[in-house]
Design a protein around this nucleic acid. Structure first.
Length: 391
DNA sequence: ACGTGAACTACTAGGGTCTA
DNA sequence: TAGACCCTAGTAGTTCACGT
């Protein structure tokens, strides 16, 4: 039927001096020859398959009547030499591809980034996303590389417009740009707008001087405002990573506050612990999780007790073990030794009062700086002399 | 305290060739 | 056909040196 329709169109259409007709298959070939016998023009018919496979001088073209089989050249001489060959329009792309970014000097489109970034760059991007305002030297420790390598990685990320660096209090510090935030948010299938609202490092007023008051992101503002605290937490984790590497263990996982919090039900109310960091230290096949609190504000006994309360609730349940597979330590570091002393006393009282025992380790800045997080820098409520974290 | 070019090492995946 | 071997390209990271 399809052959009939097309041949009818051929007959009823414009006047041809001749035609080459291709038909699929033997049966259609016979059918077409019968239909074209009365055609008002010369034509030759050949099966599609033969046309596709044969060369120009293969004898495959038949007239509708008669048994002669002609080659393409012979058939064309019958079709009439006068007139003009149809000229195909040269193919033109309907849409011309855009110039490559490299050619125009503009930055690459967002969707190329994930393919273009190297694994080491993505790791750096993640770390800077987790710890905004991180110092270059802390970043080096967390990544486990030399300063030259940090410079290479951040230069590349900066080139892609994914992070910005700021010189604050004499040190170079990194934050993600809005483009970097968007990249991570999209990767995590999270809201880009929400990420910007929390973590943007763009100034609210581009004219005004930079500073924590002039930041778009709520969390980045808070972290910059309390830079001493922010830096102390980074410094602790960096020192821990360094020290772990040098003694054969490994800081396997570090989570920033927004992933370190744990929510749980206690006496039918939703409660939570909100540490400054959560991490897992791996040494000789054992994994030791820990929460970190870097404490500056809990100075009075009542604020110290208030600080402790969420942890006492959390550790009164089975949740710490169920959440982590091992009981996480609660590491609490103070700016000065005296506060640590007070805290230990308050902690002892609170544990007796509530009957909950906390795997508490307490230290202070000077002890940590002198001996390091894995050194003899930690005291417990039952041990006045400083021991190691696992002691 | 930091930035960066040059030259280097180490390691890996993938491919090709040869041989028992 | 498996295995030994070699080559290449790419990535990761270091060291040194020379700046600002």
């Amino acid at each position: 039927t399809a052959v009939s329709i097309r041949i009818r169109r051929l007959r009823e259409g414009p006047t041809y001096s001749g035609a080459l007709v291709l038909v699929p298959g033997e049966i259609r070939l016979r059918h077409a020859r019968r239909l074209l016998r009365q055609a008002p023009f010369i034509c030759f018919i050949a099966p599609e398959r033969d046309v596709a496979y044969a060369s120009a001088d293969a004898r495959i073209w038949r007239a509708p009547s008669g048994s002669a089989v002609l080659s393409l050249e012979e058939a064309l001489t019958y079709l009439g030499a006068e007139g003009e060959w149809a000229v195909e329009r040269p193919p033109v792309r309907s849409t011309v591809p855009r110039l490559l970014a490299a050619a125009t000097g503009t930055r690459e489109p967002d969707w190329l980034l994930l393919a273009r970034l190297k694994p080491a760059e993505k790791r750096s991007l993640d770390l800077i996303g987790d710890w905004p305002w991180v110092r270059a030297d802390h970043l080096a420790a967390l990544l486990g590389v030399e300063r030259r390598r940090v410079s290479q990685l951040t230069a590349s990320l900066e080139h892609h417009d994914l992070l910005t660096d700021h010189r604050i209090e004499g040190r170079r510090r990194f934050v993600l740009s809005d483009r970097g935030l968007a990249l991570l948010a999209r990767r995590d299938r999270a809201s880009v707008a929400a990420a910007r609202k929390r973590w943007s490092a763009e100034p609210l007023d581009p004219e005004a001087p930079r500073g924590w008051r002039n930041l778009r992101g709520g969390r980045t503002r808070q972290l910059l405002r309390h830079l001493v605290h922010t830096e102390a937490v980074h410094g602790f984790l960096a020192a821990l990573a360094d020290q772990a590497r040098s003694n054969g263990s490994e800081l396997g996982q570090v989570e920033p506050p927004h992933r370190a919090s744990r929510y749980f039900r206690f006496q039918d109310r939703l409660r939570s612990v909100q540490p400054d960091a959560f991490g897992v230290l791996r040494c000789d096949g054992r994994a030791q999780p820990f929460f970190l609190e870097w404490e500056r504000r809990a100075i009075r006994p009542s604020t110290m007790a208030a600080k402790l309360a969420p942890y006492l609730r959390y550790y009164s349940s089975k949740r710490p073990l169920e959440d982590h597979g091992a009981i996480p330590l609660v590491l609490i570091a103070f700016e000065d030794e005296l506060a640590a002393d007070h805290f230990l006393r308050v902690a002892r009282e609170e544990q007796v009062r509530t009957g909950v025992s906390l795997p508490l380790r307490v230290s202070d800045r000077s002890a940590l700086e002198a001996r390091g997080p894995l050194g003899y820098a930690w005291r417990t409520i039952s041990r006045a002399a400083a021991g190691s974290v696992f002691g």
